[in-house]
Amino acid sequence: MIADLLSNFWVLLAVKVLIVAALIPVAGLVVGFAELKLSAKMQSRVGPYFAGGRWGWAQLLADGIKFFQKEDIVPENADRPVFKIAPALVLMGAVALWVVIPWGPGLVFRDLDVGIFYALAISSISTIGVLMAGWASANKYSLIGGLRAAGQLIAYELPLVLAVVGVVIMAGTMSLEGIVRAQAGWFGEGGPGLPFVIPQFVGFVIFMIAALAELTRIPFDMPIAESELVMGYLTEYSGFRFLFFFLAEFSNMFALSAIAATAFLGGYWMPGLTESQLTFAGPLILVAKVMVLVFLMIWFRWTFPRLREDQLQTLAWKWLIPIALVNIVATGILKVVI
């Protein structure tokens, strides 16, 4: 009965959409809560404490409800439609990323052949939303923030893609599912396998740096830069539109970490587990790996100050891109030699 229903394309689609729609806020909440508590720990604070009774676990839920209760203010001179669409577009980019993340053998919403490039391409949509938000707000701080975001996108899209090329060369496929299988079966079926972070360590580092820039998180948060641009492109947003941006940031953080975990850390795979075990344990393994990467991002966020716009561009064009190119060449040679 259920199997019959699921075989219908539209029913299956609806179920998948529902799952994604349910997972994204949850992932956002988990990452957001991790950020609250970890930052508190790093700064010798307690962090949220009262909401929900224990550890303040309901803090972000309460925040979310608060945001929904707030007035949705649109500035008088704003470009109204664009101003209103922008947060949705940002969130859309975050949602679309989830499509290709494999959670276990066969547990994927859609296993695209060009999976990893789809993911990287779709993740840039958020930046267009940011640019729209910056432009439509009719605020100079927002405009500068939006333009900075655009400049950042152009600069960091390149190292992000180039860093992944090494992985693609090694795996011989662009499907994320295929990349996981390539890592699991590197030393033959049933062998110990090889997470690509070991041969592709340089690529991994570049990917993480570029992902931070893509997420506009410290040390690359110039588009927001509270101390300079008040709140950058977010300056004029309030209420649930502001919440959308927030949710998108955290869910993007989760999704990009999931891509990184899949491409470099073996995704849902763990040595010693059989295919059927992985079907159940896979999602947990992936989430564990993702949380490690999320922890890294939070750690950076609360340790580093932000770079200046020109230093950011220097880092991308003079360091990351050349190193990524060299890495590709080296990977190619390695592949031929092996």
């Binding site: 930052s39 790093m42 700064q43 010798s44 604070r45 410290i218 040390p219 948060d221 830069a225 101390s227 609360w302 340790t303 580093f304 100050p305 932000r306």
Partner: peptide
Amino acid sequence: YPLELGAATPLFF
């Protein structure tokens, strides 16, 4: 001062 440069943690110390 570090906060103005974007680093929030020295504030608490």
